[in-house]
Amino acid sequence: MLRLFAIMTAAAFLFGCQQSPADAQLNERSREEVGEIVRAYILENPEVIEEALIELQRRAQAREMENVYSAIERNVAAIYGDERDPRFGGDEPDVTIVEFMDYKCSYCRVANEWVTDVNERYGDRVQFIFKEYPILGPDSLEASRAALAALNQGPEIYELFHRSMINASGPLPADRIDQLAALAGVDVAQMRTDMEDEAIMAHILDVRALGQALEVSGTPFFIVDGTVVAGANSLALEEALQRALRG
C-alpha cells in the first residue's frame, strides 16, 4: 500500500503543477507512462484494491459515527430526560445506559442476558432507560403498546412483563401478549383499556422520531454513558460500562 501511495503521490506531483503548451506533449506521454506503472502495480498486487475499499468503508463509518454523536449532543434531553420512558435501577446512578429495543428482535433477546447480568451485578449503580422502538411489524407495535400500558400499573409490573416478552421467542400475537402479561401479574383488562390511550402511541412516535434523528436503523442500540454500541456486542458493551464506572 505504501508503494502504491508513493506512485500516486509522484503522479499527483507531476500533474498538479501548471503546464505550459510546450510541455503538454511531454506531460501526456508521462501521464501514459505513470498510468501503465500504476496499472501494472495493481495487476501484480490486486490486494491494494481491497485495502482501499476497506479504508473507504472505515472513513464512511467514521463519518456516520460523527453524525450520530453530534445528534446525541443535540438530543440529550429527549434521550435521558423523558419521564415517560421505563427505567430499571437506581434514581441516582453512577452510569446510565439507554437501549432502543424491539420485543421481536432476537438480538435484543441476546443482549438482554447482558442487561440482566449488569442489573444483578451493579444494582442501583447502573440505570437502564428503555426506548420502546418497534420496527419489526404490527406484533412489535402491539407489544410496545402493551408494555407501556402495563407501566401504568407500576415499574415493577413493567419490569416483569418486559423481561417476559423480551425473552419470548417467536411471534407475539395479541393472545400471546395477554398470556405473558397475565403471568407477569399485569391486569390484562386494564392494560387493554390503557393501550387505547393516544398518549401511548404519541410516546412511541416520539421515540421513533428520536431514533431516526440518531440514525438508529436496527435494534438493539445502546448508549452507555454517552458511548454508542450498536447490536448485541456484549464485549463492547462491557468495555464501555467499565470505562464509565471508572469514570
Rank of each mutant, 00 (worst) to 15 (best):
L136T: 04
E113L: 12
P138K: 05
A202H: 09
A244Y: 04
F15V: 06
A213D: 10
E239M: 04
D82M: 06
A202T: 10
S169I: 08
V38T: 09
F128Y: 10
A174C: 07
D23G: 14
V188P: 00
Q212G: 14
L56I: 10
Y107S: 10
A52T: 13
F221K: 00
N45D: 11
R87A: 07
V216S: 03
Q127R: 14
P86V: 04
V126G: 01
A6H: 12
V118S: 02
Y133H: 04
A143F: 03
Q19I: 12
S144A: 13
G226Q: 03
L14D: 07
M191A: 00
I72F: 12
A52H: 11
G226S: 06
D117T: 11
D124W: 06
D175H: 09
G170T: 06
Q153T: 05
E215G: 09
I157W: 05
A174G: 05
E196L: 08
E92F: 13
R59L: 15
M165S: 01
V228S: 04
F15M: 06
K104E: 12
L56E: 13
N75F: 06
R58T: 11
I177W: 00
A78E: 09
L210W: 10
R125Q: 10
E99T: 02
Y69S: 03
A111V: 02
A12G: 08
S20C: 09
Y122P: 03
Q18I: 06
A77V: 06
A111E: 02
E73A: 11
I135M: 08
A147S: 07
E73N: 08
V126D: 01
Q242L: 12
L141H: 08
R59W: 13
A202L: 06
G16C: 05
V34W: 15
F130P: 01
